[in-house]
Design a protein around this nucleic acid. Structure first.
Ligand SMILES: [Mn+2]
Ligand SMILES: [Mn+2]
Ligand SMILES: [Zn+2]
Ligand SMILES: [Zn+2]
Lengths: 162, 162
DNA sequence: TTTGAAAACGATAATGATTATCGATTAGTG
DNA sequence: CACTAATCGATAATCATTATCGTTTTCAAA
């Protein structure tokens, strides 16, 4: 689905719950759609949205993100640095996607595929817990940092042999 | 392993990294061991530790928890309320355990069994990501709240039929 | 269209968790 | 026992988020 279409869809969701369609909300959603790959903090969103709607206030951004979170359009996530980050749900997804956080370069990347289906079946059965959503984050070393480390250790070896 | 033994073990870890063994650190670890089931915030720990060491300062509690986190004795976790919580690692575990958070009563319970072994193998292979740790939390309805809901809906039915 | 009420807004003060600072105290080595 | 780096307690500073409040805007009914 194109950005245009998704915007229309989100507008309908707002409208159907009788929330008003303000230019501030529209600009905020636009920023989220245009930066889907990223994991923006409220401050990040604020700075980006100011380009489209310079008069917007930070409080409004917080309010809008809170609203979008309640409507399950975005997920509010926390990677342990002191800020909340807002993550647009994937097209049609009814749950939060997974993340890979590199402990060396800080890069955050996505896993869109749902890896928890089996695990969740087990948890529902054995722990008698009715699952509505999940949060799964892996902490480790990303591909790029692994490659970098391998190159450096190879260099060291070579130098050692000379 | 008994609390006593685990305390000794943690003391050894501190000592081996040339951290000093202060009464404040000992009292803090004691509180964590005695409240292993809970997910205490720094403030929670502070209040509990004051019973053992009334002169302790809040800053020291934060410092100690930070230290224990670096030593991988506790995990710093975040359930989306505004505070960090500190969770003692299970006996001998080298990674964070999983959690079940009830969206109705707020109860948090543990899953000690590691459910991610297979998933992690797949992620390491297919995403080329070297996993060091993980965070997995399920949000849903706990057993107690399910039962409560079932009883209430049954009552309603019965009343409706009268 | 005009209009009125509820919703939303911007500015900014307040809050609350966490961190930084600094002078005083203490653990641990010898 | 003496020394010194580590640690501590008190508290000020920081920083993200929320609350407040007077003004503006949306939207639906007239
Ligand atoms: Mn994401
Ligand atoms: Mn736990
Ligand atoms: Zn990396
Ligand atoms: Zn519950």
């Amino acid at each position: 689905m194109a950005v245009e279409e998704r915007m229309t869809f989100i507008k309908k969701q707002l409208h159907s719950q009788s929330y008003k369609l303000t230019p501030q909300r529209e600009a905020t959603v636009e920023v989220l759609l245009e930066n889907e790959e990223d994991h923006l903090s409220a401050e990040d969103v604020y700075l980006l949205v100011k380009d489209k709607a310079p008069e917007i206030g930070l409080a409004t951004v917080y309010r809008t993100l809170e609203l979008l979170n309640e409507l399950e359009i975005v997920d509010k996530i926390n990677f342990g640095d002191g800020v909340s980050r807002y993550d647009l749900r994937k097209e049609g997804a009814d749950h939060s996607h997974h993340h890979l956080v590199c402990i060396q370069c800080g890069d955050v990347s996505e896993i869109e595929e749902d890896l928890l289906a089996e695990v969740e079946t087990k948890v529902e059965r054995e722990w008698n817990f009715k699952i509505k959503d999940h949060r799964l984050t892996f902490h480790g070393v990303c591909n790029a940092c692994q490659t970098k480390a391998a190159e450096q250790s190879h260099q060291k070896e070579t130098v050692g042999q000379e």
